[in-house]
Design a protein around this nucleic acid. Structure first.
Length: 585
DNA sequence: GCCGTTTTCGGCCCGACTGTTTTCAGTCG
């Protein structure tokens, strides 16, 4: 085949656009939701959806049926979907852009197009300035003013930015501290939403509180230093914006409803929708206020989430699993397959990827070793960059020999932790490594990663990666897809083939805990483990402080349904040495 | 458009808030 297949992200974009277009065209909401849901599944699929569709198997993905299977193949063959072509002629991109303005959805966009010929942010601005929007039935001066303010703020040009998880947690903690100071004793305030689910990045912050005096607490949000403005403050809570532009939702309920509220605002939206749909069939209606029973007409409240799930006939579901990826079926107390006992940070017994001042790290061997021991680790591998890393922080063969000596010397000196001399070796474009095998054989631990030449074809990249996986001295592959969250897409690579090769050779695959990476991702790590590959979770620390990044890697592993047994470094060093590929002696 | 422990057809969660209305549609999460 001459032309490469479309990446999942491109197929997902096409489905999302088609959903937007159908929405403007007045399609029923469920059809639109079906397109968006399918787009999400395609985007997060760990395998090539193009290849799946070619084989007629895209319907194996939940949310994709015969119609979309066919439309995806059409997109692959013709480069476009006829229905999208037809609708694009009716609804220009500018019309979709104005639906990004808060309070302006598809119905109003369509109305504005029909009544005033508006088809772009520019024509919308002109009409608003000329006070023509208020002439449309259902719209008034306030709507006009809100539209102008949103256009001024650039709402139509760009989607709201996503914040990486650590930053979101820090902002959330500051808000909770501020609210707690002003709250009555006994008030409980905590983070829910995608932060609690430990997602890679989040769009806004969801805070929940339980108190007997809701209105008083809601009123205090506006007074916090971090809050720029409060846009809504009803009886149930308040909504504000931070100075950095992040939306903050605070919702408040009675202590007896704590479980209901926490479950509702932890989400995800898709988990909740699926949960509620299934519950309705059993005559139960779930909301943030309680559980309405059709039979008795009573609403039952739950102080804890576990109670709520139990009333629904389900085992407790950890927040990280609540993404509608099969957890509801697995959790059924009557015949579900059961949920995994997720790996915990406390299960991690060592870190197998970190850097020192020998390459681009900021601390010495001694400092890193002491900090790792402080964390309770049993072992730590030093994996500075290899000979060709560039940026002035590569380690020549002679320098590596010296580093091995230093690590072994420190290992002899320090008690309570085993230090491994390792390297993060570059995988060269031809699949080779940038140290001689003879030198690699002197190391206790070798992790191999790609740091250059990302623009290769999928086939070449896959061959390159598999060559490294098959190298007898490579124990693990670092950050296997090269993605940087919200900054750089993964390189083109056939992960199915990578997972199979890793399983076959006993080469471990990393979940890199750097919060910019989290690579493998949750769904990829799950697919890798299912394919029989062993996962290693690393911090990739470049200083003492970032040894802490292990927690983000564990978060991804938990979101990927992994147990301690799936994770190599939940084992003792002796057990680890027995695991997977055996290094040469 | 998807999907099935009531269904291969007829369903497809639940509630808050806004701005415009005289009872509600649209939007959002």
């Amino acid at each position: 085949m001459a032309t490469p297949e479309l990446p999942n992200a491109v197929i997902a974009d096409a489905l999302e656009e088609l959903g937007d277009l159908y929405e403007l065209d007045g399609a029923i909401v469920h059809r639109v939701v079906a397109y968006r849901s399918a787009a999400k599944r395609v985007r997060e699929a760990s395998v090539s959806v193009a290849a799946l569709a070619r084989a007629g198997r895209a319907t194996e993905l939940p949310g994709i049926g015969a119609t979309l299977q066919e439309k995806i193949v059409t997109l692959l063959d013709a480069g476009t979907i006829p229905a999208a072509e037809r609708l694009r002629a009716k609804f220009p991109p500018g019309l979709i852009a104005i639906t990004r303005i808060p309070g302006l959805g598809p119905k109003r966009a369509r109305l504005l197009q029909l009544e005033l010929g508006i088809d772009s942010p520019e024509s919308l601005r002109e009409a608003a300035l000329a006070q023509r929007l208020r002439g449309v039935r259902g719209l008034g001066p306030k709507f006009e003013a809100n539209v102008l303010a949103a256009l001024q703020a650039g709402a139509a040009e760009r989607a709201a930015p996503r914040i990486l998880l650590p930053k979101a947690i820090a902002v959330g903690a500051a808000l909770i501290a501020g609210l707690s100071e002003r709250a009555r004793p006994g008030t409980r305030i905590e983070l829910a939403g995608s932060v609690r689910r430990q997602a890679d990045s989040v769009k806004d912050l969801d805070l929940i509180a339980t108190t007997s005096r809701p209105a008083a607490l809601a009123g205090t949000l506006a007074g916090l230093d971090e809050i720029e403005s409060v846009s809504a403050a009803g009886g149930a809570g308040a909504r504000g914006r931070t100075h950095a532009g992040m939306t903050v939702d605070l919702r408040i309920a009675k202590p007896s409803q704590h479980g209901n509220l926490l479950q509702h605002f932890t989400g995800s939206a898709r988990h909740n929708a699926a949960l509620r749909e299934a519950s309705v069939r059993g005559g139960l209606h779930v909301s943030e206020y309680g559980l309405l029973e059709d039979a008795s007409g009573r609403t039952r409240t739950c102080a804890t989430e576990a109670e709520l799930y139990e009333l629904l006939g389900l085992a407790y579901i950890e927040p990280e699993l609540r993404e509608d990826r099969g957890e509801l079926q697995a959790a059924r107390l009557d015949g579900g397959a059961g949920l995994p006992a997720l790996v915990r940070l406390e299960d991690i017994r060592g870190d197998l990827h970190c850097h020192t001042i020998a390459s681009d790290g900021h601390n010495s061997i001694e400092e890193m070793a002491a900090a790792a021991r402080e964390r309770g680790y049993e072992y730590l591998a030093f994996t500075d960059h290899s000979a060709s890393h560039g940026f002035g922080n590569d380690v020549s063969p002679d320098q590596l020999r010296r580093q091995i000596e230093l690590v072994h010397r420190e290992n002899a000196r320090i008690d309570g932790i085993e230090l491994l001399a390792g390297s993060e070796v570059n995988i060269l474009p031809d699949g080779g490594l940038d140290y001689e095998d003879e030198l690699l054989a002197e190391l206790d631990w070798v992790i191999a990663s790609m740091h250059t030449a990302f623009a290769m074809s999928e086939q070449k990249m896959t061959e390159r990666m598999i060559a490294a996986i098959e190298h007898p001295l490579v124990r693990a592959i670092g950050h296997p897809t090269g993605r940087l969250i919200a900054r750089r897409a993964p390189y083109a690579i056939d992960l199915d083939a990578v997972f199979a090769a890793a399983a076959r050779t006993g080469t471990m695959l990393e979940i890199n805990g750097n919060p910019d990476r989290r690579d493998l991702s949750d769904v990829q790590a799950r697919a890798a483990a299912r394919a029989g590959a062993t996962i290693v979770i690393d911090s990739d620390a470049h200083r003492v402080l970032t040894l802490e990044n292990m927690r983000w890697g564990v978060a991804s592993a938990r979101r990927g349904w992994l147990t301690a047994a799936d994770v190599a470094n939940s084992r003792s060093l002796a057990q680890l040495r027995e695991l997977g590929k055996q290094p040469r002696k």
